[in-house]
């Protein structure tokens, strides 16, 4: 029988690698939607929390709604409205990025083993995925030129943080209140970024962040 948890984590890892290698913005947004849904599903699939209170159910539903639909929708609108050229324009090439992503998985395994945390069985894989996602998010923020890819990198970072929370906590859903706060932050961040993107593209006719370098004094 297929282990659902591991399958989900594999999908997440693949989505991370895919996002590092994708050349089109629209594709990237779609990948983020998929990754968001998968990340929100992970805590449900972990074995040792069979009993859910109604609050937790609502919480996970809201989580999927925001991560899977709302934020990608906003990003989609931003890409549409600002009429960005659809290429991603990397500093680090696509193949090199994927290679870095693979390297990051190795480093994550190394870190997880070195942390020597007493984790529930199966959670170490979650932690590996989480660290990879986080590091890839940071890498995406550093290695891409467009402002919107920074937002996506930031989202990925948040997904990673959420996964770490899933791996480390004891799954009482009160702990997710913190996660929920972070999520709200991200949501607001994405909204603000949409506005800023609009302004950047109005001021510079492009959303290339290297152009922002002109703003320094």
């Amino acid at each position: 029988m297929i282990n659902l948890t591991e399958a989900t984590l594999v999908v997440i890892l693949l989505s991370v690698l895919l996002s590092l290698g994708s050349t089109r913005l629209m594709a990237l947004v779609q990948i983020m939607a998929l990754q968001g849904v998968m990340v929100s599903l992970t805590p449900l699939l972990l074995k040792h929390n069979e009993a859910f209170s109604s609050g937790a159910i609502i919480f996970y539903q809201v989580m999927i709604l925001i991560k899977g639909i709302l934020i990608p929708g906003l990003l989609y609108l931003a890409v549409k409205r600002v009429a960005i050229k659809r290429e991603i324009e990397p500093f680090v090439g696509y193949h090199a990025s994927i290679l870095v992503g693979l390297g990051l998985i190795l480093v994550s395994v190394f870190i997880t083993n070195n942390l020597r945390l007493s984790l529930a069985s199966g959670n170490d894989i979650v932690l590996i995925t989480a660290i990879t996602t986080m590091a890839s998010g940071l890498f995406l923020m550093m290695a891409r030129r467009k402002a919107i890819t920074q937002v996506i990198g930031y989202l990925m970072l948040e997904n990673g943080i959420y996964l770490i929370g899933t791996a480390l906590t004891n799954h009482t859903h009160t702990i997710y209140v913190v996660e929920f706060g972070v999520l709200l932050d991200v949501l607001v961040g994405v909204m603000i970024m949409g506005i800023i993107l609009h302004n950047i593209s109005r001021a510079f006719d492009d959303v290339d962040t290297t152009l922002l370098g002109r703003l320094k004094d």
Binding site: F91, L138, M142, R145, Q150, T209, T210, L212
Partner: peptide, 14 residues
């Protein structure tokens, strides 16, 4: 240090 490249600022943070 303040050169205006966001990507490098992020790497400072990291």
């Amino acid at each position: 240090i303040q050169h205006g490249h966001i990507q490098l600022y992020i790497s400072y943070i990291i």
